[in-house]
Design a binder for these strands. Structure first.
Length: 312
RNA sequence: GGCGGGAUAGCUCAGUCGGUAGAGCAGAGGCCUGAAAAGCCUUGUGUCCCCAGUUCAAGUCUGGGUCCUGCCA
């Protein structure tokens, strides 16, 4: 099994800095696990590592699609596998760093594999939703795939549509895909999480938004519009971007938009924290007390184990 | 100054025919298998601005007061 190191944690908890420091020490490369840093031209609001940092350490899966394109967990794991193997072949241990929990989970445990859903099926389901209502789609799901329906709430449009499109595209129920999927760890991972007191994290989030605006976040959003992207572009559906659009359109005050941007970032961090509560980590670091030499010595122990496993 | 509109949960507001009140957002907690910075669930006792009156009963009707706010001057 290929060894990897993951660095996870809520937004603004200081993952990138730690990742760069460890990457320098291990002479390795970083793979971004972030559903928004994949977008080109969205640098400030997604808190991408700076050009200098990227020159220092090679970062992967950053700036790979345009803001009108969609990304998802399936694409991520496909591309991440390629990069991981490539780095592994160079004798290095890749560091995966980012806050998109689902991507890491999917990468480590796998997801059921199906071909791309034809756009026609999505259109058909959405038309059906407009003509009828969510309730009737949910009833249909209950008939087709009762086991999936049981796990999905009748109000959860996104997941109801997903389960139906899987059925329509593959002719197999989502619950069957789950069953066929063999769930086993694909990598030998050292998982590290950065934790942060809630009040401290919220302050960091708030002040980071102020800093982003000082760095030119609003100009960055304007330039996206100048390039022809609109508020409907998938990339613009990002916390720290979408909230400022009403201000740029003179529909809202700056203060209100900023308030919402901060609020939504805090809400997002809260959801991340809840998610991580169900994940296992080798090390949990407190953001304010990170002792880098302690981290390194723990990693050293793990590395020795990995090497033994690899060579004997 | 004249004529309106308003005052109800931290915020924005509903509240039908008078029967002591409820949504969204926030906050708190939780869920999560291809949109995940997404989507979803649980959680709502507050001098219904104040005073007086009518009434068995007033957020709701009447009178007065206070404070916001729009238009016209």
């Amino acid at each position: 099994m290929i060894p990897i190191i993951t660095i996870q944690g809520a937004t603004a908890s200081g993952k990138s800095r730690l990742a760069i420091e460890l990457a320098e020490w291990l002479n390795t490369e970083i793979i971004s696990v972030d559903s928004r840093q994949v977008y080109r031209y969205m640098d400030i609001g997604t808190a991408k590592p700076s050009k200098e940092e990227q020159n220092l350490i090679k970062h992967h899966l950053i700036d790979i699609i345009n803001p009108n394109e969609r990304y998802n967990a399936g694409l991520f794991i496909k591309e991440a596998h390629l990069v991981i193997e490539d780095i592994h072949k160079q004798g290095k241990i890749p560091i995966l760093c980012g806050g998109t929990g689902l991507y890491i989970k999917s990468l480590k445990e796998g997801i059921f594999s199906i071909p791309d859903i034809p756009e026609s099926i999505r259109i058909k389901l959405n038309t059906e939703l407009l003509e009828k209502d969510l309730e009737s789609l949910y009833h249909r799901l209950q008939n087709i795939d009762p086991r999936s329906a049981e796990r999905i709430k009748p109000q959860d449009k996104q997941r109801i549509l997903r389960a139906l499109e899987v059925w329509e595209a593959t002719g197999q129920r989502m619950s069957e895909h789950w069953e066929m999927q063999h769930k086993e760890n694909q990598f030998q991972s050292f998982d590290l999480i950065i934790e942060c007191d809630r009040s401290v994290l919220y302050e960091r989030i708030n002040s980071r938004l102020d800093i982003m605006v000082n760095q030119g976040l609003l100009e960055e959003i304007k330039s996206l519009f100048n390039m022809g992207y609109t508020k409907e572009s998938f990339g613009l559906n990002t916390v720290g971007y979408k909230e400022f659009i009403p201000f740029l359109e003179n529909q809202e005050t700056y203060e209100n938009c900023m308030g919402l941007a901060k609020q939504h970032s805090r809400n997002y961090a809260k959801r991340q924290i809840t998610w991580y509560r169900n994940c296992n980590f080798n090390v949990a670091l407190n953001q304010s007390l990170i002792n880098i030499s302690e981290v390194k010595s723990l990693l050293k122990i793990w590395l020795e184990e990995v090497m033994r496993y690899e060579y004997f």
